[in-house]
């Protein structure tokens, strides 16, 4: 047996996203923010994200920013959205380089569709009670029953060509265009982009029917297929 495990896990992490390259201004603002909630932020692991700076980002120096944050009790663990020079500086400081979208502008509007990665994830065996299947960043196709107490989740659409007796959550990262298709609806819960209905609230005439579930406005719509 191995003495350790390697596990892919999404851990919450705070981004420190400078909106200026002026270190003096940053230092003042960081000090002011930390004074408000010192306990909460002490030792907080942050990723320095340069994506909001656009072309100005090259004027910002990673070692200097790292020192500034450490001086205020934060723990920089890596960078993202920087240029090649930044990545070299990060490597010298033994900081990680995260693959954020390198030229992404600060987000303003609603969440966009997840990128279609490598087609849909296909599950051919029954999803049993207590099991969870998550198709990250893509669609999910299930060819066998989803049992009571089982959970199928996708960032994209979910297609189930068998009875759905458990839970199905499409658009898990907030994609409102996601849909659930199912040949036999007996679900405990269905959800699209966080809007959900439990079994009790599903119209009785759809019990056992072939349906599609989508969002219209902020309303969950169930229609026969």
């Amino acid at each position: 047996m191995s003495s350790f495990e390697l596990k892919g896990k999404v851990a919450p992490c705070t981004l420190f996203r400078p909106l200026t390259t002026d270190l003096a201004v940053l230092a003042g603002d960081v000090a002011a923010r930390l004074a408000e909630t010192p306990q909460f932020l002490r030792g907080l692991a942050v990723i320095m994200d340069f994506s909001a700076l656009g072309p100005m980002r090259d004027q910002l120096d990673v070692p200097a920013l790292t020192a500034l944050l450490r001086g205020h009790g934060l723990t920089p663990v890596g960078i993202q959205g920087g240029g090649e020079a930044h990545e070299r500086q990060a490597a010298d400081l033994h900081l990680g380089v995260f693959s954020g979208n390198k030229t992404e502008a600060p987000r303003t509007g609603s969440v966009s569709a997840p990128p279609a990665e490598t087609g849909a994830m296909v599950v051919e065996k029954p999803v049993r009670s207590g099991q969870q299947v998550y198709a990250r960043g893509r669609d999910l196709v299930v060819l066998a029953p989803v049992g009571q107490g089982a959970e199928v989740i996708a960032d994209g659409n979910i297609h189930i060509y068998a009875p759905l007796r458990g839970r199905a959550l499409a658009g898990a990262m907030g994609f409102e265009g996601a849909r659930i298709f199912c040949t036999e609806l007996r679900a405990e819960l269905i959800s699209v982009a966080g809007l959900y209905r439990v079994s009790e609230d599903l119209p009785g005439n759809f019990n056992g029917a072939a349906v599609q579930v989508s969002l219209s406005g902020r309303q969950l719509v169930i229609e026969p297929l």
């Binding site: 065996k125 029954p126 999803v127 049993r128 009670s129 207590g130 099991q131 049992g147 009571q148 107490g149 089982a150």
Partner: peptide
């Protein structure tokens, strides 16, 4: 039946 389904999941994992 539901408990059996759970056990089948464990058998497979």
């Amino acid at each position: 039946v539901r408990d059996s389904d759970r056990v089948l999941g464990l058998l497979q994992s």
